[in-house]
């Protein structure tokens, strides 16, 4: 059989290939983000340190040692009072959030919930949906990267806003930015190596508190 490659065949071939390419590409339309000019002050806390430890002591004040003779260390958590805008210690009765590794707990009557959105554009706190339950686990306020690069990293999820009703019934919004000391560049080669990353459990976040007790967070 000897056939020639006719023009008609070439056209059919070209048509099929073009059709198949076109049929797969889709158009997309994206919305721009409307930016809101904030009226309340946006404060930033850098490196709230929840990585410190202390030696565990027995009742008589002597260090407790393990079977290897090493002193037993216990973590010192970080506590934050949002109404006062400062770090407090565990004995305080005004802390709102306890930063316990990747778990956030709420105390002294403070309640919280996670919402989605752009921090600056989120202007009204919800009236319901608050809870005193701990926030823990990958997918809540952070993602754990597991074996995806950068491996074994805790990365706060962009667009997750923690809305807080403080211990003294003020509304606040909080955006967690970093879980590592110095808020390092997570795309840097140095951050890839999880053995030599900056200290974890060191928090950087931004927040806004409405002092008048209303839900306005603009």
């Amino acid at each position: 059989m000897k056939t020639t490659f006719t023009q008609a065949n070439a056209v059919t071939l070209a048509f099929i290939m073009v059709f198949f390419t076109l049929s797969l590409s889709s158009c997309s339309k994206d919305d721009g983000d409307n930016n809101v000019t904030p009226e309340l002050e946006v404060k930033t806390v850098e490196d709230l340190d929840g990585s410190k430890t202390r030696v565990l002591l027995d009742d008589s004040g002597n260090p407790i040692t393990n079977e290897n003779g090493d002193e037993v260390l216990v973590p010192i958590r970080a506590y934050f009072d949002f109404s006062a805008g400062k770090e407090v210690d565990s004995t305080s009765t005004t802390w709102d959030i306890k930063f316990d590794g990747t778990t956030l707990s709420f105390g002294n009557g403070a309640e919280a919930q996670l919402v989605e959105g752009i921090f600056d554009n989120y202007v009204t706190a919800p009236s319901t949906g608050f809870s005193t339950e701990n926030m823990a686990g990958s997918g809540t306020w952070y993602n754990y990267t597991a074996t995806t690069d950068p491996q074994h990293a805790i990365l706060p999820i962009p667009g997750k806003i923690l809305v807080l009703k403080t211990h003294d019934d003020k509304y606040a919004k909080i955006e967690l930015i970093s879980y590592y000391r110095g808020n390092p560049d997570t795309s840097a080669e140095a951050f890839k190596d999880f053995m030599n990353r900056p200290d974890s459990k060191v928090y950087t976040f931004r927040y806004v508190v409405q002092p008048d007790g209303s839900t306005n967070l603009k």
Binding site: G139, Y142, N143, T145, D149, P150, L155, I157
Partner: peptide, 9 residues
């Protein structure tokens, strides 16, 4: 794609 550096998964 090979990684997620901004934490959105």
């Amino acid at each position: 794609g090979v990684r997620d550096v901004d934490g959105n998964g």
